[in-house]
Computed example of a mutant assay.
Amino acid sequence: MRLLPGSGKSVAFAVAASVFSLGALAQSWPSGTVTAVVPWPPGGPSDIAARPLAKGLTEALGQTFVIDNRAGGGGNIGTAAVARSKPDGQTLLITSSAPIVINPSLYKKMTFDPLKDLAPVTNLLRVPLVLVAHPSVPAKTLKELIALIQSKQGGFSYASSGNGTPQHLTGELFDKVMKLNMAHVPYKGSAPAITDLLGGHIPIMFDSTIAIMPHIKTGKVKAIAVSGAQRSPLLPDVPTFAEAGVPVESYAWYGLFAPAGTPKEVVAKINAEAQKVMKLPEYQKIRAETGSDYVGDTPENFTKFVHAETAKWSKVVKDSGATVD
C-alpha cells in the first residue's frame, strides 16, 4: 500500500491523539457519581466488600460511589445491567463468584457472557467455606463424617444457600470426589439454611466463614473442615480437606468488574485506586474479620483466575447435573 505525501504524519498524529484521549479519560476518571452495582439484596456478603470499598473510593477521589443493590436471577439481573452499561468506568460491578463463573453453566439461557462482556479489575475478598454439622451428628472429624455418610447409603442430606451457589457446588464437589451420594437441600439464602441446621432439621451444610462463624463460636454448630488451601486464621484448630486426604479446595470470592470495552488505562486506574483502599485499616479489618487473605491483583492476573474458576466450576456443574431452568 502506498501512502500519500503527508499521510504518514496524519496517521502518527491520529495514533498520538488516540493515546492522549485515552490517557486523558483515565486521568479524568471518575468524572461524576460512580454506580457500583451489587446484584444481590442489601446486607449480603457482597455488601461486606462493596460498602467499605465505595466509602474509601468516595473519600479518596472526591466523587460519590453509590451502591445499587439490584438483585434477582441468581445475580444475573444486576450483572447483565453492568455488562450493557457504557464502558467508561462510571458503572462498576461488585459481586460474588456465582454470576461470573457458575451461572453460565447452570442456566440454559444467559443474556450476557461474563468472559466477553465484563472486564475483571481485581479480586476483593476470598474466604474459605466451612463444612459444619449439627452437634447431634456423631462425627468429630472429616474421616468420621465420611464413614457416617457412606453408612447411610444415600440417606444423608446437606443444605446450601441455594442452587448454583459456591456452597452448593462445593457440596457437589465433595459428594462426587468421595462418592457419597448425598441429597442436596437448597434454601433461599444462607439464613434459612442456617436456621434449619441450628434446629437439627438438616445435619450438615457448607457456608462461608462470613456467615457461619458466629454459630461456631457459640457452639451451636461444630466445624468439621475448611475448604481453603491453608487453615483459616479464624479457625486455626479446624483442618483443611486436603489435610484429611480429600482433594476439595473452594472459596467464596468477591470481585470488582467493569463493562467490557472500558479502556485499559481506565481499568488500570480503577485497579490502582481500589487497591489503595484495600490496604487501609478499615478494609484490612474487614479482611481479618472474614478470614480473607489479601487478594488485590492486576487485571491480567484476575482475568486468568476468573477463566480458571470458570473451567473448574463448569465441570462440577456438568458432573453433578445441576440446573435451575
Rank of each mutant, 00 (worst) to 15 (best):
Q63V: 06
L169Y: 10
K143D: 15
S232I: 12
H168T: 07
V34H: 04
L106W: 10
L131K: 06
T64F: 01
A54C: 13
I216F: 04
V246R: 07
K269G: 03
E300D: 14
T33W: 02
D319Y: 01
I270L: 02
P138Q: 06
R70N: 04
A14L: 10
P186W: 15
L93K: 08
M178L: 15
A272Q: 12
A211V: 11
S136T: 13
V246E: 07
S21W: 04
P135M: 06
G44A: 03
D207L: 06
I194T: 11
K269A: 00
T95H: 07
L169C: 05
I77D: 03
L118E: 01
P39H: 03
P5D: 08
G255R: 04
E249A: 15
S105Y: 14
H184P: 06
V246Y: 07
E300F: 10
A159K: 01
T79N: 03
M182C: 01
A98K: 10
T64S: 06
P114F: 10
R287V: 12
A119K: 13
V101K: 07
S96D: 15
D88T: 11
H184F: 13
A119P: 00
R287G: 03
K276I: 11
A50I: 10
L93Q: 09
F302N: 12
H134I: 01
V137A: 09
L118H: 07
T91S: 08
S232W: 12
P263G: 03
A308E: 13
K179E: 13
P120M: 03
A258F: 04
K179N: 15
Y187C: 02
F257T: 09
T323R: 08
V185G: 01
H307M: 14
K264F: 00
P99N: 11
G164D: 02
V66I: 10
H134E: 05
A308C: 01
F206E: 08
P42I: 07
Y283K: 00
A26N: 03
A36G: 00
V127I: 12
T170I: 13
P104M: 09
L235A: 02
A26D: 00
D88V: 12
M178A: 14
F305N: 10
I146M: 05
K220C: 00
V19R: 01
T262C: 04
H307A: 15
G75V: 14
